[in-house]
Nucleic acid binder design. Sequence first.
DNA 1: TTTAGGG
DNA 2: CCCTAAA
Length: 705
Amino acid sequence: MVLQKRLDYGFNGYQVPHIPRATRSVRRRGIIKRKADGNGTCPFDLLATVAGKLLGEGESSPDSTGSVKGKEKGAIVKDEKVKEAEDKSLKEKSYTEGCYERGFFISELVSQAPVVNRSLSELPHVQNDTISRPASASMSSDCSEKLLFAKQFVNGESSEEHENFCSKTEREASGCGVFSSCTLDTENDKQMKIELSNKAKVLTDKGTAISSSKFPDVWDKKPSTLVTSDENVKLSLSTYPAPSRSFPVIRNDVKLAYKDDDENSGCTQPSTPNKASGAAPRVRDRPIKKLLASKYWVENLKSDDEGHANSGGKTMHVYYNRNIGYKRDGYKQQRSQRDFPFKKRKLFKCGSFSNSDGEMSTDGISSSPKNDLHGNASGSSKASSGGCAAVGTSVFSGGRPFLRPGDSHVKFRIKSFKVPELFVDIPENATIGSLKRTVMEAVTAILGGGLRIGVVFQGKKVRDDNKTLLQTGISHDYKLDALGFSLEPNPVQTSQPLGQDCRSCVLPYETPQPLTSIYVSRCPSPSTVIHTGIHQGRSDDHTGTSLSTFLESDHESAPSPHYAALEKISANSRALVPLTAVNAEALSAVPLRKPKRSEATQRRIRRPFSVSEVEALVQAVEKLGTGRWRDVKLRSFDNAKHRTYVDLKDKWKTLVHTARISPQQRRGEPVPQELLDRVLTAHAYWSQQQAKQQMKQPSETYLLL
DNA sequence: TTTAGGG
DNA sequence: CCCTAAA
């Protein structure tokens, strides 16, 4: 759906602002302190990385021409259309074969209609396919959960690969996995879809593309390739919806993570390929590294991939099951264990907010990260027995309240925030750079807007904002009860973009469901940290989602790379931390709430106007003129609840501006020149009309006087 | 509530 | 997009 439309418009290029407006705003508001320069210094590069892999993998693609397209926008589409058919078939074939070769099960499902909002949980195995439509191949195994999973969507078809790290049996036997924490978010159909296009090339090779250690190579060799079609690659970075029986799930976060491992793997944008070697990497990799637990992690991650992608690989499967030491490969297993210590330590570093890099301004909140990672034994067991109905979004808290000598303050420590599912829909010919920015924007949007904090205490959601902590039961002396916070989308509903054709619509949180979860741990009284809390999920009022149970322990189990990956991703969400964490730190009267903005006045998420919307706007304005935004709204955006007349007015303002600047300076999804021309024409016309009125009015009044 | 503009 | 003065 998306693609077609775009093709119709015949443009291809896409430029993303270096620093998304939204980001700046957010930062300005103090939500995000860290600067996100389009240079790859931002933590979100991690995400981008995944895409990078996908893109780089296409070496063997049939339609790979090996050349790199220029930067010109538009005009590239024509030929592409012609080629599309054959390319498609080729790819399809290629992909299919690949899947079969690997013993994947391929299913075809057709969902022409944009079923974006479909509950993922409805179709455990094809959740994302639904979104992409036509032919999608989905691999699945007996194991209903996919711990790892990555996919590639091309031309509506999607190639994906799911990797299971455990079998049903395993899961059952082990009860709850220890890594529920790895879940970014599950049972959440909230997704973010981003679209943009660029010139970098992507290969739609087989599903294999995504996994396996060969990435680095491919990547390095071909930072960017060529594509002939305007296909989109969709990356779904999210947790797999937990089955009814929900188990902790680990997603392909891992994949995101490992890529950056290669110090110099060219996660760099096409334009800066050489940065790979030398000191340069530091600039970019550093942040990533911080997030990434360590190389060890990476290794493991890779291993995982290999192990699954290549059946014969000598990789190990890392299971994060504390109860059962399942091993498929002794060697690897050993290695994994060997690395544990490191991982743990590293994990702390990256997971803890105490990173003193100051970038996230979350310092000071946590003082003893290490302890935090080590769950309290009793707490752990308790947790596991609590039945992990892990739905994904859950919150925990644990630990003992920090008792202060004089007063009765409660300190909270939020261990981590998780970023909800992120859905990226990007043309194959998009550049890595734009992909990065896109993901960045997506994440920023999630973090910066439409979120509110939910508080769960003792398994119940605390809705009364006016209650005091004490009244609620949260006091400095409460036992091991869990206190949780959850990030939930604002009640603000989003409507579907104009009509059916939400081509490049950003699918924000259409439904109010918890987006993220936060792990909180009570600030440890001195050295004891317990962050194993269990909360029986309870349905949230209108959100219909439940805060699920979550358990976490790190005693025997080594932190999983997934976790690390998650942490990395989560790191970004640290942007959110300040709100709560800082408060806690400040230890103001009410540690949990930020009276002003955090709760009620959430900044709306950014929703770039699609071309279709622009067209509608232009058309309306041409007819109604400027200055009648309400009418414009009613006329063309009546059912786009998220577009207010002020928005339309603002959009028009920017459109006029856009039309006046050189194409090179434009950002975001390119607007057809034709439309821009109309904008200028209409603007000129109505300005003139207005001027006439101005001229007329004074005289009239004058005459009247 | 709408407009109109600056931020 | 947000915030607001004005209308």
